[in-house]
Design a protein around this nucleic acid. Structure first.
Lengths: 335, 335
DNA sequence: TCTCTACGTGCAATCGGTTGCAAGCAACCT
DNA sequence: AGGTTGCTTGCAACCGATTGCACGTAGAGA
């Protein structure tokens, strides 16, 4: 014994065996004190827990995983971490997962359906279950890729899979009415990606409202849900003659505003714009963006709850949450 | 050979043993074919690999982890996922980690130093190493919390720890010169959080430039690096009489612009603003924000490289990258 | 007093890899 | 021919927790 290193004795991490030894009980008892406390005499359990704390014991995840087949990890697959829609969702998921003692393994598919397939099969052996946010893949392919891994799909309907979605229909109708009340009669709708489930839903909500209200609606797109596509679309909007615009999401809305500004227009003086999602950007731009706020924290929490339920063999109902209208500064009376 | 089950035979996931059996070799050989290919006769190795592919074999991470003590996971601790500075970094880290066959376990400290301590000790047993982005904790406490876990600190200097930082001094001086050339002579600096290393560095860079250039510099703050703090600070800026403002980061810059707008001013007509980091927001606001672009992808890549090196016992030099000036629409001549 | 039940505990196998050690074998050297 | 070397491979002991099974004990019931 040479290296008497000063502070921390190079003591190997405590195991159930070290605890068992210290207490002169068997390792099984220690194990059970944690995983099945009801099977251990209260007094013994207390002593085990105390000693564990003393020795700084933390169960070895790998060993537990090997024995139980559970990793304590949830995979989270997002199409694009840098899209401001996802970070609040990620955070909520992370928190909720921590509450059920699970970690979050994050992967980004860079918006590619092919990558989704690859990533899913890459990580499905490493996790207990998968949370798939806004998948690009068609439902059938998605199901195939997922195989038997317990999964929850976020922000998209998918027959035969557990889903947690946000319905914006009511909020969008409210938004439309808000614009109508301000005096707008000519509307434009900037459609999102054709493969996007949300885009279809939103378009449908607005389309049916416009029909009922008997106002004109110019449908533009499909566009990619990115800033530059919004910016480029500004000319088409001007051309359409619409005074009020529904952008597919906040990013596109910001793009449109930038594009209109390039053309010498000011929002909301010359035109009103409404976004969707209420990402950080919507709150921080000037003027603030009128938009439909998605309950992202709740979305995250519910997804984790659903996955957790799935893992415990509980039947999990599909969840549908509601978006709400948030009026800020990009809507006003028509010129 | 009986079970010709039609599509997916309910076959348990393939293991090295199933492969070994199929090939009539020992499991050790199969194991070595993967982990130490050089020890296996090429011909045998080929057959193992082929059979593995055929059987859809994927090594069991938990088992490997138990045997080797490696989990194949890097922990990534960020103070706030929703701060747009981090998502691009996260994505880069995730990609780089995948390239060395590691997963990323993401945790968010919600900007609290105390939570950092708790989270670090919570996950350090589950990961091979830790990437700590912009920690709030003082270096000493951080080191204590990290203990012996191989770690890389991102975006902050920390004596005795491996670090990967971005130096903005040169870019900020360039930005200052840009403003000076436009005719500005009265400057203001909105300082970031006092605990932030980056804030100190940026302040120092600007302060020393101002001194050399012989222009007036009003130092405001410290502020939190959030939108609302920027917005509230607008009045102080007007009061200071500065025509050009360095905000600690883009979020604050956006806040200032909003605040000035509240007061009836327009940027850059009435005042010029410069941010820092070049987050998505900076590109998507109207007008675009003049700012110092941080090489986030490179920052992420280098951090992973460093951690990977650490894990292989290689000596890892500290990395320092350079920010670059990006001129957009929030800077112009003084009124 | 004797069985029966219920509870608490320990034994030992198991999860799926990794790895030190030694044996088998062929080529090479003297 | 005998000895040496180096390459392949198998054996078996781990890694740290979980869990089915069986044993021992004490209290309940007859």
């Amino acid at each position: 014994m040479v290296g008497a290193r000063s502070i921390l004795p190079i003591m190997k991490q405590a195991t159930i065996y070290s605890i068992a030894q210290a207490l002169e009980v068997s390792a099984s008892t220690v194990s059970r004190a944690f995983s099945r406390p009801d099977l251990v005499k209260p007094e013994v359990r207390e002593r085990v827990l105390a000693t564990a704390r003393e020795l700084g014991y933390a169960p070895n995840r790998a060993a537990r995983g090997l024995a139980t087949g559970r990793t304590g990890l949830y995979g989270l697959l997002v199409p694009d971490v840098t899209n401001p829609f996802f970070p609040p969702l990620i955070r909520a998921i992370q928190q909720a997962a921590a509450r059920v003692d699970a970690g979050v393994l994050l992967v980004d598919s860079e918006g590619s359906g092919a990558a989704e397939t690859a990533l899913v099969s890459r990580i499905k052996a490493q996790v207990d279950g998968l949370l798939v946010a806004s998948p690009r893949l068609a439902t059938a392919k998605l199901k195939e890729a997922l195989g038997a891994v317990p999964s929850v799909i976020i922000n998209r309907a998918a027959q035969g899979l557990a889903t947690v979605v946000c319905d914006n229909t009511a909020a969008l109708r409210e938004a439309a009415t808000h614009l109508h009340d301000l005096g707008h009669r000519r509307f434009a709708l900037m459609r999102g990606p054709s493969a996007s489930w949300a885009a279809g839903r939103r378009a449908h909500a607005i389309r049916s409202w416009a029909q009922e209200a008997g106002v004109s609606l110019a449908e533009l797109g499909h566009y990619e849900a990115v800033f530059v596509d919004g910016r480029r679309a500004a000319a088409q909007i001007v051309e359409s003659g619409a005074t009020a615009v529904f952008a597919f999401d906040d990013l596109m809305a910001a793009g449109v505003i930038a594009g209109l500004s390039d053309l010498g227009e000011t929002v909301p003086r010359d035109r009103s714009i409404i976004g969707c999602d209420d990402v950080l950007l919507a709150r921080t731009m000037t003027p603030g963006l009128t938009t439909v706020t998605a309950p992202l924290e709740e979305l995250g929490r519910q997804s984790v709850l659903a996955l957790h339920g799935l893992l415990e063999q509980r039947p999990v109902p599909n969840v549908q949450l509601q978006g709400t209208l948030t009026v800020r500064g990009t809507t006003g009376p028509p010129p």
